[in-house]
Design a protein around this nucleic acid. Structure first.
Lengths: 114, 114
DNA sequence: GATCGCGATATCGTCTGCCGATATGGACCT
DNA sequence: AGGTCCATATCGGCAGACGATATCGCGATC
C-alpha cells in the first residue's frame, strides 16, 4: 500500500528509456542514478525489467569490458524512443490533470447525486 | 510488458485521491471517469484498491441510497489529502525530470566509463 | 409480501511482477 | 591456479491486477 512507491515504479521505465536514449547505460549505474532521484529499485526488479524491455525490442544490449569487469550495456532502439515519446505524453497529461497549476476544468461534474 | 498501462496504473490512486478530495465519489463513477481519461481499470482492480486505501486511512466511506440502489461513497480523509500532496509532488518531479520542456541538466554525467 | 430486475459492489482463480538475498561469472592480481 | 571484486543473474515467497462471476439491496410488479 505504499502509493508513492507504486507511482515511482510505474515511472521507472520512463527514466530508463530517457537515459538509454541519451547515452549507453548499464544496470548498476541506472540503479544508482534512480536511487539518487528517489527511486530505490532492487536488482531483483531492475535486471528482469531490463531483460523484458530488451525482449520487447525497446532496448538493445551489448557487452563491454570495463576495468576488468563485464558490463551489459543498453541503449534505446527506435521502438524504445517511440515508447519514450508515448510515455512522456502520458506524464504530461497526468501532470496537466493532477497538478493544481493550470487547472483545466475538463472534469465533468458528477451526474447529480441523482 | 505494456509500459503505458503500468505507468497509468501507478497513477490511478492519484486520480482517486484527487477526485475524492473535491467531492464524494463512488466506484462505478470513478471507473467511468478514469476510463474517460484513458485509464481503463477493471472492477477487480478498482474495488480492492478502494478497500485498501480505506483500510490505510486515506479514504472514508459511507453508504448512500440513491435511486433505490446502494452506493458506497468515498471521500478523502486528511491523511488522504496529505498523501495526495505527496503524490502530486512526485508527479511534478517526474514531469520536471522527464519532459523536455524545462530541461534542468541536474543529471550527473555518467562517471567516465570508469 | 414474494419475486424479479438492475445498478453497484464484492470476491475468486490465475497470472504477472516485485523484492531482497543469494549465486554466478569474468577479468585482473599475486 | 586461486582469490577478489563488480556487475549481473536468479530464486522463493508474496502482493496486486485482471476479467468473470456472484452477491446485495432497493424498488417495482403482480
Amino acid at each position: 500500500m505504499d502509493l508513492v512507491r507504486e507511482l515511482l515504479r510505474g515511472a521507472v521505465p520512463v527514466h530508463v528509456l530517457h537515459h538509454a536514449t541519451e547515452q549507453e547505460v548499464y544496470g548498476a549505474w541506472l540503479a544508482e542514478e534512480l536511487a539518487r532521484h528517489g527511486y530505490p529499485i532492487s536488482p531483483g526488479t531492475l535486471y528482469p525489467l531490463l531483460h523484458r524491455m530488451a525482449a520487447a525490442g525497446l532496448l538493445a544490449s551489448t557487452e563491454h569490458v570495463v576495468e576488468g569487469r563485464v558490463r551489459r550495456v543498453y541503449q534505446a532502439t527506435p521502438a524504445g524512443r517511440d515508447a519514450l515519446l508515448q510515455l512522456r505524453a502520458v506524464v504530461a497529461e497526468l501532470a496537466d490533470e493532477v497538478l493544481p497549476r493550470h487547472r483545466r476544468s475538463t472534469t465533468v461534474q458528477r451526474k447529480g447525486t441523482a
